[in-house]
Design a protein around this nucleic acid. Structure first.
Lengths: 145, 145
DNA sequence: TTCGTTGCAAAAGGTTTGCATACCA
DNA sequence: TGGTATGCAAACCTTTTGCAACGAA
C-alpha cells in the first residue's frame, strides 16, 4: 500500500517515520481499527507518534481513497485499508471484529437504479453489515482486538 | 404516533408535557433531525424542555422502534419517525435534507442471503442513501433545516 | 405516596485546532 | 532554506451521567 500511496496520490505527501509506521500497521489489519487502537498498537510497537498525527494521517488516507471508513455503534470511526480490487462493503463480526469484503454488486446496481425510480441524482450509499462469523459461533467468543 | 407509543410500547411510559412536545414536533418532521435541532425547534415553539430530556426521550423512542436513526457525516445522530408500514431505509437529499423511504426489499433479501454465502449468522445491516432531490436539481439549493 | 422524569452542571469520549518546533525535500 | 509534518495542550461537540427536585398515577 505504501508504494501506491507515496507514488501516486497525494498532492504533496511527504514520507515520514510516523506515516510509514501507520501504513505498516494498517496494511496488516485484518479488521477495522479505530484511531485510538492504531495509536495504541503503534506505541506498543515502540513507535513514537502522537495521536493527532494518527488522526491526520488517517484523514489523508481517507481522502485519497486508501482506506475505507465505517462507524461502530458508538459513532467511533473505524478504518481499514481498501483492497486493490476496489471492494467497498464489509461484513464485520460483532464478536471478534473480524471483517471480510462481500460482493455487493447487486446492491450497487440497485442503488444506481434509484436515480431512475426516485428522481434523485448523484445517489451515494453507505452499507454496514454485521453478523457473527463461523469461528465465533462454535467456540466461545474470541474477544475483540 | 403518540397514541401508538403511549398505549402499546413502553415498559412504563409516563406521559409528560415534555414528551408530548417532542412527539408533536417529531411527528411532523419530513426530514431527519438531530437532537439539537429538535431541542431548538421546541424552545423556539415556547416549550420549556431540557436538552437532556430530548436525548432521553429519543433514546426511548429508538429502543421501542418508533424512530429510525442515521448518522450524518460528522457522526451526529439524526432521528425520524418510522413509518407505520415499517420501511427502514431512506434516501436523503444532501442539499435540503428531505428524506423519502425507499423500497429496499432486494437489499433485504440480499443481506439475508449472506448468511448462506459467508457463514456469518445473525446478519444485520445499515444502509444510508444520499442524493440530490429533484427540486434541488432545478432551482437553487434550498438550505437545510 | 411512590417512583419514574426532569434539568442543571459536569463528565465523558472522540476528533479537531492553535502554535511553536522538527524535519523532509 | 522553505514549506510540511509533528505534537502537545486546549478547544469542540455531541451524548451521557450524578443528583436533587418535581410531578404523574
Amino acid at each position: 500500500m505504501e508504494d501506491a500511496l507515496i507514488k501516486e496520490h497525494p498532492p504533496s505527501w511527504r514520507s515520514t517515520r510516523q506515516r510509514a509506521a501507520v501504513l505498516l500497521v494498517l496494511r496488516d489489519a485484518a479488521t477495522f481499527v479505530s484511531a485510538t487502537e492504531l495509536h495504541a498498537a503503534l506505541t506498543a510497537d515502540g513507535a513514537a507518534i502522537g495521536l493527532t498525527t494518527v488522526y491526520r494521517t488517517l484523514r489523508v488516507l481517507e481522502r485519497t481513497g486508501h482506506v475505507d471508513v465505517m462507524r461502530d455503534k458508538t459513532g467511533e470511526r473505524l478504518y481499514r485499508p481498501r483492497p486493490a480490487d476496489g471492494h467497498r462493503h464489509y461484513l464485520v463480526c460483532r464478536r471478534c471484529g473480524h471483517s471480510r469484503p462481500v460482493d455487493a454488486d447487486s446492491v450497487e446496481r440497485w442503488a444506481e437504479s434509484l436515480t431512475a425510480s426516485t428522481g434523485f441524482t448523484e445517489v451515494e450509499h453507505t452499507l454496514e453489515l454485521t453478523g457473527v462469523c463461523e469461528p465465533c459461533q462454535s467456540g466461545g467468543a474470541p474477544s475483540p482486538g
